[in-house]
């Protein structure tokens, strides 16, 4: 492992940062496309082309934005806050390089709470227009988010405690990519816990349905019902980035093969390739889960999250209490 130093290192870091920035901006619609495509295939439909999500975003950006007369500056600011916080978190995540830019800042608690900042403003904006849908979505979103948080903290706790740090980069680089450490029961349980958390946080099917506009079942969609044009585009883009963030978390903390071992170009490219495979695989798994499960009743969601919480707790017990 050759570690560059000084000027060269800074250049490399800057280059990596730019690559990562481009990746987190460009990849999410593709991931979304993969999920949509594979869902369609699973249901014997042709489905939209992979580029559909890009076209959707592009179209939304070009369309006129409508703003309700009852709203305040919160409504206009929220899309930017959501997009900004999500993008910032995405650029701080460990993805495919050993020298992540600003890696020292990828503290798990900080990132979770940054996402929380975005959600806070989105939930406020939903109440701003004064329609009952907004209140409904905002209330449900905040409820589910508050139940997700403990499970999320616990799900990475076991791995973090082994690494002795809550910094995601430190955790990702401390997980050894040997089979027995990847497939040990504690890791599998924590993965399952975090997977459920991912479904809940990104509004996927057993918890929320991203494709519905039925008031009884909407959560996220109800919140953003008043948005249109570029505002909606920013929010949609942000929620796609959020999915990528959680996929990276799942992929890099539990399947850490592929984070390039050095800064050589070959390793770097291989790293990116492996990362793409992992993300693609997870997208297909999510599509599979979405196609085989029905959306849960709202008051059954706490049970599911409790399962995630207990799985994470069990992973911790198996790793540390049972020697």
């Amino acid at each position: 492992m050759d570690s560059p130093n000084g000027m060269e290192k800074q250049l490399v870091t800057a280059a990596i940062w730019i690559v990562q920035l481009v990746a987190v901006l460009a990849l999410p619609p593709l991931v979304n496309g993969i999920i949509r495509k594979s869902k369609a295939r699973l249901q014997n439909r042709v489905g939209p082309p992979l580029s559909q999500s890009y076209s959707d975003l592009f179209k939304l950006f070009r369309k006129e934005a409508l703003v309700s007369a009852t709203t305040s500056w919160i409504f206009r600011a929220a899309p930017y806050v959501v997009f900004t916080t999500t993008l910032l978190v995405a650029t701080l995540m460990p993805m495919f390089s050993p020298y992540p830019p600003l890696g020292w800042m990828s503290d798990f608690i900080l990132l979770v709470y940054l996402l929380g900042l975005g959600r806070f403003f989105l939930a406020l904006s939903a109440l701003d227009a004064g329609s009952s849908f907004g209140g409904l979505g905002s209330s449900r979103e905040m409820t589910i988010a508050s139940l997700v948080e403990p499970a999320m903290i616990l799900s990475i706790f076991a791995t973090a405690a082994s690494a002795g740090s809550l910094n995601l980069n430190a955790i990702a680089s401390s997980v050894s990519p040997s089979i027995s450490s990847l497939l040990n029961p504690s890791q599998i349980l924590a993965f399952a816990g975090l997977f459920i958390v991912t479904l809940a946080e990104t509004g996927r099917i057993p918890v929320d349905n991203p494709a519905t506009h039925l008031e009884l079942t909407m959560i996220h969609e109800a919140m953003i019902l008043e948005y249109s044009g570029r505002h909606l585009a920013l929010i949609e883009w942000a929620s796609q980035i959020k999915l990528l963030i959680f996929f990276s978390l799942l992929g890099n903390l539990f399947i850490p093969t592929g984070i390039a071992a050095s800064v050589s170009l070959v390793d770097f490219v291989t790293g990116i390739a492996i990362y793409l495979v992992k993300i693609g695989g997870l997208a297909v798994v999510v599509a599979l889960v979405e196609s085989t499960n029905a959306k849960l009743r709202l008051f059954r969601v706490p049970d599911l999250l409790m399962v995630a919480f207990t799985l994470s707790l069990l992973s911790l017990v198996l790793r540390f209490l049972i020697r």
Binding site: P185, L314, L318
Partner: peptide, 20 residues
């Protein structure tokens, strides 16, 4: 031992699934 370990954990998980 590794497989036994894995299976024992799986048994615990099925017990939890029964509960849930």
């Amino acid at each position: 031992p590794y497989l036994i370990d894995l299976l024992a954990a799986a048994i615990l998980v099925t017990t939890f699934l029964i509960v849930s």
